[in-house]
């Protein structure tokens, strides 16, 4: 499994070209909320049947959550439950979850999506109201507590939403949708404190 992915990890020659993340450094502050692009992170889309979860959890160093709309975080690495056999792993500590999964022989699919997605931080007392400008889910702490994670909708774009604190969210979207998502969140931020 994941042999091909492992191969890309092997070579060690330094990149001679720079990485240019989408919307790098963009940020917007409004009363009660700040919207900003997050630095690049390592990400994989992990698919696996239940029988493989123990092996994968061990390899990844965290317990893959099995309850809908939840996540698990350890040492800068977060596993988001997205579906009954689907997780997104986000690693902000610079470690490569694709390489970790490559060692696992149990049935699974791990696909690198580090560059497919971008992360946007929405933080502040008006963060939930900002996201609710385009996201139809109930974002109260009762319905969407800290650690809750879900694929959902923001306006006309699909996003993955992770609540990292009572007043802070991580919004993940595909790279080419980032301009739309960031702009919508920025415009909504200006209204959210009202």
């Amino acid at each position: 499994m994941a042999k091909a992915a492992a191969k890309t990890k092997a070579a060690a020659a330094p990149a001679s070209v720079e990485r240019r993340p989408a919307l790098a450094g963009r940020a917007l502050s409004a009363p009660g909320v700040k919207v900003e692009m997050l630095p690049p992170a390592e990400r994989i889309s992990l698919r696996a049947p239940e029988a493989s979860l123990a092996a994968l959890s061990k390899a990844l160093g965290l317990t893959l959550p099995t309850k809908p709309k939840t996540s698990a975080t350890k040492d800068g690495r977060t596993a988001l439950w997205l579906g009954p056999d689907e997780w997104m792993i986000i690693d902000e500590a610079g470690n490569d979850p694709l390489a970790d999964c490559a060692k696992v022989t149990a049935l699974h699919s791990a696909v690198g999506i580090s560059h497919r997605n971008v992360g946007i931080s929405v933080a502040g007392p008006a963060a939930a109201a900002t996201v609710n400008s385009g996201c139809p889910q109930d974002l109260s702490l009762e319905a969407f507590p800290v650690g809750a994670a879900s694929r959902t909708i923001l306006g006309k774009s699909e996003i993955v939403l992770l609540r990292i604190a009572a007043d802070a969210f991580r919004v993940e979207c595909w790279r080419s949708f980032s301009d739309y998502v960031f702009t919508l969140l920025s415009e909504a931020a200006g209204d959210a404190a009202n």
């Binding site: 809908p68 709309k69 009954p84 139809p136 889910q137 694929r151 959902t152 909708i153």
Partner: peptide, 11 residues
């Protein structure tokens, strides 16, 4: 039935 809760139609 997989998310075990009601979710908005838009999804």
């Amino acid at each position: 039935p997989y998310c075990e809760e009601e979710r908005p139609e838009l999804e």
